[in-house]
């Protein structure tokens, strides 16, 4: 319990120092909002098909970027050492850092969703599954952002490393087109991407339709990816802490 309170302190401080700043909030929202608006202007009847993918993309970029930037920045400034000197378990540090990055990703995705609801009339047929998808995605992506941050030294290196993964993943995970329209040889690869399951859960939330096999499959797959990301982050953090 004491460690949970300390993880909460880390998250709160990160939100206060970094995530709560207005420029950062608008940075996370501007691109997806403009993209969706353009699609809506082009064809108001089909934008809904792509909206869950864009929301998932917002979540992916928001959570991974912020986690990586904050940790890399703190490593450079020497302030990350304060956490290592404090009586915190490695899991507490990871939890604290990942929770604030997840909160940022979630907040931007939710603001985008609310914008779509009130401005363009998007409705959610299954809000619970939609929210589960957002939470699973934000948690998993922020942990992946943290792992990138501990591998590299500079912020630009973290961004390069993540873009190397994020852009191919965007292409294969059903963000811009349904999985069924991907070339057959790419479809098995899509199943190896956590984003695929997040897009599917958001799709179920918005349209009620799943491209994979229903919410249970996507939730279980999302949980598996979350566990794998957490284990990877812990392993790399332990190693990096002593460098």
């Amino acid at each position: 319990m004491r460690q949970f309170r300390r993880a909460y302190a880390i998250s709160r401080k990160d939100i206060e120092s970094y995530y709560g700043k207005p420029p950062l909030v608008t940075w996370g929202l501007l691109f997806p909002a403009v993209l969706l608006l353009s699609l809506y202007v082009k064809d108001p009847t089909t934008y809904l098909a792509i909206a869950p993918g864009i929301i998932a993309m917002t979540l992916l970029f928001g959570s991974t970027s912020m986690a990586a930037i904050v940790v890399t920045f703190e490593k450079r400034a020497g302030t990350f050492q304060r956490l290592l000197l404090a009586p915190l378990s490695m899991r507490t540090i990871i939890l604290g850092k990942a929770a604030s990055a997840s909160a940022y990703g979630l907040a931007t995705a939710l603001v985008l969703t609310l914008g779509l609801k009130f401005a363009l009339g998007m409705t959610l047929v299954d809000p619970v599954i939609f929210l589960v998808g957002l939470i699973l995605g934000a948690s998993c992506f922020s942990l992946l952002g943290l792992t990138a941050a501990v591998i590299v030294r500079e912020v630009f290196e973290a961004m390069t490393l993540m873009n190397f993964v994020r852009f191919p993943v965007l292409f294969i995970s059903g963000v811009f087109m349904p999985l069924s329209q991907l070339p057959s040889w790419l479809q098995p690869l899509a199943l190896l991407s956590p984003l695929t399951y997040v897009v599917d859960l958001l799709q179920i939330g918005v349209t009620g339709r799943s491209a994979i096999g229903g919410p249970v499959v996507s939730v279980l797959a999302g949980l598996l990816f979350l566990l794998a990301s957490a284990l990877l982050a812990e392993l790399l953090f332990r190693r990096a802490a002593f460098q």
């Binding site: 302190a9 401080k13 400034a77 302030t79 304060r82 404090a86 009586p87």
Partner: peptide, 27 residues
């Protein structure tokens, strides 16, 4: 308590907030 050779507190936080935050980390 460890004082590293570089003064490495959080530059964006005030003096009071830095102390209070570290107090939180120490429970």
């Amino acid at each position: 308590g460890v004082v590293p050779d570089e003064s490495n507190l959080y530059p964006e936080l005030t003096c009071r907030r830095n102390l209070e935050y570290l107090g939180e980390l120490y429970g």
